[in-house]
């Protein structure tokens, strides 16, 4: 029985993928719902947990973060996701990246997806810049040999040629982000998912980053989460506005940006 259920799920998955491929869709999200259990009384230890159980306290309350989310991203599309703090954007991103599992609903990802929930994942302050490039590269799925090949380019783009043998803890925060960003843009995937990573470094470096994003436009499926409406209008083909866990607007970047600004009126 268990074996059949597994087979059935596999079959459903491959059917969904085939359908997405036929429609030229990179990501299809249907009726997605996610909630978290928020601890009401801190049950951070065994003692509390047992006490709460004895007193009939559940110890958490359920908070719905996203409900009934439906959208598609076409291949090659540059989609912006905007919304206020706590609206559920980052949760949505983590669901797309398969970091969280949904309560119900489905996410179909057609192709390989590279998520940047944060820059420099796994960076270790006790290691040198050089060692961190290899470490962070591994997080993105690059073997040592593959990193060898792009090492010089990464260092050059980050403008950190003289600092590679220093420990990361001696870098300024700007330098760290530059290094992380330079590694991140080497990642190759069918779909890139970026969470507010645009605003890094000084003005000159920003210019470089913006050029990179402009170069992605039209060649790559990108999902970008941001607060910067300027970037939404500049880079995106389409945008989605999320408010209190629901999609309230889906359409032209300009119209969505206007709706976002209206949230404060």
């Amino acid at each position: 029985m268990a074996f059949n259920a597994k087979k059935y799920l596999e079959k459903l998955r491959s059917e969904a993928l085939a359908e997405a491929e036929r429609d030229g869709v990179a990501i299809r999200v249907s009726n997605l719902t996610k909630s978290f259990k928020l601890p009401t009384e801190r049950a951070w230890g065994l003692k509390q947990a047992i006490f709460n159980r004895l007193r009939g306290i559940k110890g958490y309350k359920k908070q719905v973060v996203l409900s009934g989310i439906d959208f598609e991203v076409k291949k090659g599309e540059f989609l912006g996701i905007v919304g206020r703090n706590g609206s559920g954007k980052s949760t949505l991103l983590k669901l797309l990246a398969e970091i969280y599992v949904p309560d119900s609903g489905k996410v179909t990802v057609n192709g390989s997806l590279v998520p940047f929930i944060e820059l420099g994942v796994g960076f270790n302050p006790e290691l040198t810049g050089r060692e961190n490039i290899y470490l962070n590269g591994a997080m993105l799925g690059f073997s040592n040999r593959e990193v060898d090949k792009m090492y010089n380019e990464i260092v050059k783009f980050a403008e950190l040629e003289d600092f590679m043998d220093q420990k990361l803890k001696n870098y300024s925060s700007g330098m760290q982000v530059r290094l992380a960003f330079s590694i991140a843009i080497r990642a190759k995937g069918d779909i890139l998912v970026l969470d507010e990573v645009l605003a890094v470094g000084d003005a000159a470096f920003q210019e470089k980053c913006n050029n990179y994003f402009a170069s992605l436009h039209g060649n790559q499926t990108v999902i970008l989460v941001t607060h910067d409406m300027g970037n939404v209008e500049r880079f995106c083909d389409r945008a989605i506005l999320i408010e209190k866990g629901k999609i309230v607007k889906d359409g032209e970047p300009k119209a969505v940006a206007d709706a976002y600004r209206k949230l404060w009126d």
Binding site: E126, L127, E131, Y134, A138, M139, G141, S143
Partner: peptide
């Protein structure tokens, strides 16, 4: 499988890092 290869890269890099960090500064 591409994901299997990625997992192996991740594992070996983490093993190396853990071992390196263990005795660093001593």
């Amino acid at each position: 499988m591409a994901s299997k290869r990625k997992n192996m890269i991740l594992l070996s890099e983490m093993v190396k890092t853990d071992f390196k960090l263990r005795y660093q500064g001593s």
